Simulated assay, not measured.
Amino acid sequence: MIELIIDQRRRSLGGAFEVGRVLPFARRQMVGPFIFFDHIGPMDIPAGIDRSADVRPHPHIGLSTVTYLFSGEIMHRDSLGFQAPIRPQEVNWMTAGSGITHSERLEKARALGDRLHGIQAWVALPTEFEETAPDFTHYEGDDLPAWDADGVRGHLIAGSAYGLTSRARTHSPLFYAHLEMAEGATAEVPVGHSERAIYVAAGAVDLGDRTLTTGQMAVLTPAASALRAVEPSTVMVLGGEPVGERFLYWNFVSSRPDRLREAAEDWKAGRIKLPDADDAEFTPFPESARITPGAPE
């Protein structure tokens, strides 16, 4: 039932942002089109935290960022002029395509204090959409179908699964859902996609004869069909169809290494527009960055 188990690796993004990096992994770059999977927190942020804790404006190409929170709030601003807080059970879906910049600010935490916990995933765009026009959409409420039955409360973030369809616009076949499972509850793993995985954000679940705990992703074989919560658990289920090999260079994703070099030079030369409402600072390009088809452990 399990092809591979990936343990998160803790990484600092600067300031207060600490994540558990899951994808890409040395032995597994992607699950379907999901090429990055970061577990944000959980972390308690005190009121009055300095702006240096924020994620300053930075660029992307060739992907969509999908931000989903279990608790807390992050303020998004981008170079298209969009400004939108992301709160629990909502989705900020930003398609970078040919290029976009955005910042992620802890403004609620700065004013009131906050407990931040969530997932940011990157979805690689199919080759024909890698240079599509950038876009941003905020989804909430009925956009993301919810259900509550037999000890499982779920939110469908994207795609079609569990007999429901999300309104989130995707560029390739995929599914992505959040499950809150009571102890002893069971949940199906959606079928119909060639690559699938589950990630335990909190708690523990049984999958076949294996127990997965907080911070573990299981890449599944076609035989995997259901999981059972050993204790109250927060689980993400995801999958989709492969889009082909992708190269990464800092925050850039592309099927062409030369395109990554071009994007990096544009950023270093100041040719990529910053958000109008947040252009007083930016994230410098890390000179230690290397083009890679995966990522070191």
Rank of each mutant, 00 (worst) to 15 (best):
S166G: 05
S166D: 08
R167L: 09
R167N: 14
R169Y: 01
R169L: 09
R169K: 11
R169C: 04
T170E: 02
T170Q: 11
T170C: 07
T170Y: 00
H171P: 12
H171C: 13
S172D: 12
P173Q: 05
L174H: 10
L174W: 10
F175Q: 08
F175K: 03
Y176T: 08
Y176M: 08
A177Y: 02
A177F: 07
A177P: 11
H178P: 03
H178M: 10
H178T: 05
L179M: 03
L179E: 04
E180N: 14
M181Q: 01
M181A: 02
M181P: 10
E183C: 14
G184S: 12
G184C: 09
G184W: 08
T186E: 15
T186R: 13
A187Q: 03
A187N: 06
E188S: 01
E188L: 05
E188N: 09
V189M: 06
V189I: 15
P190A: 07
P190D: 00
P190L: 01
V191D: 14
V191H: 13
G192A: 13
G192D: 12
G192Q: 10
H193D: 04
H193P: 02
S194G: 14
R196E: 02
I198N: 00
I198M: 10
Y199F: 15
Y199L: 12
V200S: 01
V200M: 03
V200E: 01
V200Q: 01
A202N: 13
A202W: 14
